[in-house]
């Protein structure tokens, strides 16, 4: 049955459905509903909710819980996610699965509390130190907040790569109908590597990121890189809308994609063959979506242009334009439409 839920709450409910054992949080707008929901509902489901003393502690608690073999999660918003970067790097370095939620607000610094997409670089390119990647999901609806959370737990366990749900203040706060009875299936994986007390095991398990011999660390890094390459081949995920005959393809993720879709409809009604590519995962980036014959891409983001760099790389030599708003301002349907028209009217189409 469908019910009306906030994005943040749907995400939290889906995490409980996924069997999350622990949630470690710290208050920050606009993600606090996740912690509030967990505080109320996770203990009833046999899990642990703990408000940590900082985001640094919260992510390190995740390291401990994930290292012990349990599904663990933390959520925050941009400034708090910056604090988590140390822990995220360690989690990635120890090949631990977990889910980290960033309900993005505007930065840099304290920035503002309105929605933004300016943490794309941080999520997709690293954020913390070292060669590592996260599986990054980009929900564009309350339903996807729920669905992608289940998938994030599944894939993170399967690949032993930490997952991030890269949402934003609008998607987190808005209410929509969501079907919580039709979530993706839960997949369980054995975790023989977990440090959970030896029990009958002969050898002790060690969760570690230290390799003092450069040869050894290089080998570990290269092995992980192979896994990343496999993930790139297998996990790219995107949605297309009216792209079959499109000359101008708008590309956007999350809340921007919903607004861009309306602009694409408006362009179509004016006779312009516009379409939309919406990445559902940002890492691995859906490079394959941009291997096509098209006159121009228009990348739309709530930032000063971050994903656009990956679109340019994926699009080869194709023309890539950018339109963005920042500071907590939403992208505007009319402004997107005007950019589509400008590109269209430039005569080379």
């Amino acid at each position: 049955m469908k019910k009306l839920m906030k994005g943040n709450e749907a995400l939290a409910a889906a995490a409980i459905y996924s069997g999350v054992k622990c949630f470690f949080g710290y208050p920050i707008t606009p993600q606090t509903e996740i912690a509030a929901y967990m505080a109320k509902h996770l203990p009833k489901a046999g899990g642990v909710f703990l408000q940590a003393e900082s985001e640094i502690s919260a992510i390190n608690m995740v390291y401990g819980a994930a290292g012990a073999g349990f599904r663990a999660m933390t959520s925050s918003s941009s400034p708090g996610i910056s604090l988590k970067q140390e822990g995220i790097s360690y989690i990635a370095g120890a090949d631990l699965p977990c889910v980290i939620v960033n309900v993005m607000r505007a930065g840099p610094g304290l920035g503002g509390i309105q929605a933004s997409q300016s943490d794309y670089f941080q999520a997709v390119k690293g954020g913390g130190h070292g060669d590592y990647r996260l599986l990054v999901f980009a929900p564009a609806s309350v339903q996807e907040m729920a669905d992608m959370t289940v998938t994030a737990f599944n894939l993170s366990d399967k690949w032993r790569i930490p997952a991030m749900i890269l949402s934003d203040g609008v998607t987190g706060q808005m209410m929509e109908l969501v079907d919580m009875d039709d979530l993706p299936e839960i997949c369980r994986y054995d975790k023989p590597w977990a440090a959970n007390g030896k029990g009958g095991r002969k050898k002790h398990n060690i969760i570690n990121t230290l390799y003092l011999e450069p040869e050894e660390l290089e080998a570990v890094d290269m092995e992980r890189e192979k896994k990343y390459e496999r993930a790139k081949a297998e996990l790219q995920d995107w949605e297309e809308y009216m792209t079959d005959d499109a000359e101008i393809i708008v590309t956007a993720y999350g809340i921007s994609a919903r607004i861009a879709r309306a602009a694409v409809n408006a362009a179509r009604s004016e006779g312009i063959r516009a379409g939309l590519i919406r990445p559902k995962m940002l890492w691995p980036f859906p490079e394959d979506a941009y291997k096509r014959d098209v006159k121009a891409y228009l990348c739309v983001e709530m930032s000063r242009g971050q994903m656009v760099e990956d679109v340019r790389l994926a699009a080869g030599g194709a023309r890539v334009e950018f339109y963005g708003r920042c500071g907590g301002m939403l992208v505007d349907e009319t402004e997107i439409l005007n950019r589509i028209k400008e590109i269209h009217d430039e005569g080379n189409i």
Partner: peptide, 19 residues
């Protein structure tokens, strides 16, 4: 069994394990 924690974070990591 052993976990190697980041500098200073051992009590948080231990909390995650113990919970």
């Amino acid at each position: 069994d052993v976990m190697e924690a980041a500098h200073g974070r051992a009590p948080a990591v231990a909390t995650g394990v113990k919970r």
